[in-house]
Amino acid sequence: MTRPVIGVTTSRRSGWRIFPLVAFNLWLAGARGVRWVAGRPSDVEDVDGIIIGGGDDISPDLYGGRIVASSRLDPARDTMEVCLIEAALERGKPVLGICRGSQMLNVALGGRLDQDAYATYTASDHVRTILPKKAVEIVPGTLLAEHAGTDTMKVNALHSQAVEVLGRDLRVAARDRGGMIQAIERTSEPFALGVQWHPEHLFYARRQRAIFRALVAAADAVRRDRAQLPHVSAAADQPITKLP
């Protein structure tokens, strides 16, 4: 079969440099990425799964929050991504959310965000770097744990907001040492996973590539008309593709 096709949302401003990294990770995992930006065509019927990428803060209008003066918002992208997530889940297509995308997955399913997460979680390490310097603890028994293991994981961090109240059918898959939610996942079909960090920048790390493997396994199940969650679990036993 040909490679599963994954639609990847990006910002207009920074997507030109982020999308190639995401596409590279998808290629290593056996899929092909196509870039989507607000104002251009994006249809879940054309793909086997979607990635909601990182970028600006999400408008608090979507979850009843308050406007923060320092926030940089992208309302057009917010609208596009909410519609895409709703359409993907309705049509049984898997979703991976990265940083902002993890937050958007939660909001689209009725959850709320903490707009000043480090003020709430004062024991969390407040680092802002693309390098893997933040420690997160993965919850045993989750799909994320099946693919990435439960050893403490070092990740990068570029966020100021975080998931506060979980959306429908979501559970916590990872927290940092201060208790702040760092990953969420859907508990029923179709597959959906959100990570607060940027695994696309950590492609040299096997456990980060495993995140993309999980999404591609779910997308492959779509093509084969199979249940996604068992297919994703089975894929966890397969070796990670080595770097070229």
Rank of each mutant, 00 (worst) to 15 (best):
R35Q: 12
L193W: 09
R100W: 12
G30D: 04
I67A: 11
A88D: 10
D125T: 09
D237A: 14
L143T: 13
I130N: 06
I181A: 07
R66W: 06
A117M: 10
T142K: 04
M153E: 13
Y121P: 02
G179Y: 04
V107Q: 03
A145R: 08
F191L: 06
G49Q: 09
G7V: 06
L96Q: 07
A235Q: 12
R206F: 00
E189N: 10
L170I: 02
K133G: 09
S102R: 11
L144I: 14
M153N: 00
V5Q: 14
G15W: 04
P239D: 13
T2F: 02
A38E: 12
G55M: 03
V22H: 01
V44E: 00
V47F: 08
S42G: 12
V222Q: 06
Y118I: 01
A173S: 15
V107M: 02
D225P: 00
E185Y: 09
R207K: 15
G194N: 03
R213C: 09
L243D: 10
M80C: 01
Q196T: 01
L170T: 02
G54M: 05
V82E: 06
V163G: 08
L105R: 07
V68G: 01
L170Q: 03
I130F: 05
R168M: 07
Y204H: 14
H126N: 15
I50L: 10
R171G: 05
S233W: 05
I18D: 14
E189R: 11
P132I: 04
R128A: 11
D114H: 15
A162T: 02
V172K: 04
G54Q: 06
T120L: 11
S71C: 08
V47M: 04
G7N: 03
H198K: 10
A31E: 06
G54A: 13
K133D: 09
R12Y: 00
V34H: 08
I18T: 15
L62F: 11
V155N: 04
H159N: 12
G54Y: 06
A119I: 07
A108D: 06
T2A: 14
I67L: 15
V222Y: 04
G55W: 03
V95N: 10
L229Y: 07
E86T: 14
A108C: 07
G53F: 05
A219R: 09
S233Y: 02
A174V: 07
V165C: 11
L158D: 02
T120A: 10
E81W: 06
E81Q: 11
I58C: 12
I58E: 00
A69I: 01
G15H: 07
A162R: 02
G97H: 04
L109D: 10
Q182W: 00
K133Q: 14
T241W: 05
V37R: 15
M104Q: 13
D176P: 09
I51P: 03
H126L: 10
Q161R: 10
D46Y: 01
Q182L: 01
R168V: 11
E189M: 07
G97D: 11
F191M: 07
W27Q: 13
C83M: 12
D125F: 13
V107E: 07
V136W: 04
I67R: 13
W16F: 15
D169P: 10
L193T: 06
A210I: 01
I130D: 07
Y204D: 12
L89G: 05
D114M: 05
S70H: 12
E86C: 04
T10M: 15
R77S: 11
G30Y: 09
Y63P: 02
G65I: 02
L73T: 05
R17Q: 09
I184F: 01
Y118E: 05
G194I: 03
G141K: 07
